[in-house]
């Protein structure tokens, strides 16, 4: 209150520094600034830039890129092709992971199994694609084993099946480890209580586990869908990139790096992003329809 001017402007307010500190904004908070600026500059800004760029086509009106995408079968078919791969792969991965995780959670030495499963995630899709090309190829071990059982050669590479199998091989470990962490987070005493009250395993699963798992399952479905929807290296290497596995990421890549039309490439990337967002919203809405209520018992 010594300075008349400041005192007059804010007679009872403490200095700005103190007011900010009371709201937890001080020197320590500033430590977050570089990382936040980095993400804003290299993630948020490029996204907005891409969105605007997609409305500034090389020729035609502001919607020309989108109009072109949805009028040429060569382009709009990629959306359908991608869904045809991503939806079955996601459903297989997530719904197979539930019964497996229910078994594995009772295992004492889980770590061996989880370590084996983390290997394909770490190696990545390019290496899995190269391995599957040899393993599933016409002279590979898989077809040789089938021949032992008297089954003729099955074509599993350079087509839809090759990409699907690679999506399962690199995707299942991910969904499984995620589901496992949700399942082990459920308090076992809840199930024991149901068991004491005479509920058989099937009823315990549907009435205790599933409702508690709904939240995690929805997140798991979202994450694995988004990952399978953006399949790229295996669709090129293991699939038929000009034909039945010409997914949307290939269309985006070709626009950017073969036609050098960055505006069109941004438009395709935006369409890809909105398709992913659409499915995520659909999954979250579906979860609310199926299960409404408190989600407790998870450690998350």
């Amino acid at each position: 209150m010594t300075d008349r001017a400041i005192g007059a402007a804010a007679p009872e307010r403490p200095p700005l520094r103190i007011r900010l500190a009371l709201r937890d904004l001080d020197g320590v908070t500033l430590l977050a600034v570089p990382a936040v600026l980095f993400v804003l500059a290299l993630f948020v800004y490029p996204f907005l830039y891409g969105l605007i760029l997609s409305f500034e086509p090389k020729a035609g009106g502001w919607l020309a890129n989108y109009r072109k995408f949805f009028s040429e079968p060569f382009l709009y078919d990629t959306v359908w092709t991608t869904f045809r791969l991503a939806v079955p792969a996601t459903l297989i991965n997530v719904f197979l992971s539930i019964p497996v995780a229910m078994r594995v959670r009772r295992l004492q030495r889980r770590r061996v199994l989880t370590t084996i499963l983390v290997v394909p995630i770490t190696l990545g899709t390019v290496l899995i694609a190269e391995g599957l090309l040899t393993y599933l190829g016409p002279q590979g071990w898989f077809n040789r084993t089938l021949a032992l059982f008297g089954i003729g050669q099955v074509r599993l590479v350079h087509n839809y099946m090759g990409v699907m199998l690679s999506l399962i091989m690199s995707g299942f470990p991910f969904t499984f480890l995620l589901t496992l962490s949700y399942v082990t987070g459920i308090d076992p005493s809840l199930e024991q209580a149901a068991s004491t009250l005479g509920a058989p395993p099937r009823a315990r699963f549907w009435h205790i586990i599933m409702p508690l798992l709904a939240q995690g399952l929805a997140i798991n479905l979202c994450l694995s869908f988004v990952q399978t929807f953006s399949v790229f290296p295996s669709a090129v290497l293991l699939g038929a990139p000009a034909g039945e596995t010409r997914v949307i990421s290939i269309a985006a890549y070709q626009a950017a790096y073969e036609q050098y039309d960055y505006s069109m490439a941004s438009a395709v990337a935006m369409i890809m992003g909105f398709a992913q967002l659409f499915v995520i919203l659909l999954i979250l809405a579906g979860r609310n329809l199926l299960y409404r209520g408190a989600v407790g018992g998870g450690k998350g």
Binding site: Y45, P46, F47, G50, Y253, A256, A269, G273, Q276
Partner: peptide
């Protein structure tokens, strides 16, 4: 959370453009 959950293919092309 967003850069970790959105797949790199989706944001990679606008990022590379910038």
């Amino acid at each position: 959370l967003l850069p970790m959950m959105i797949p790199p293919i989706t944001f990679g092309i606008p990022l590379a453009t910038v």
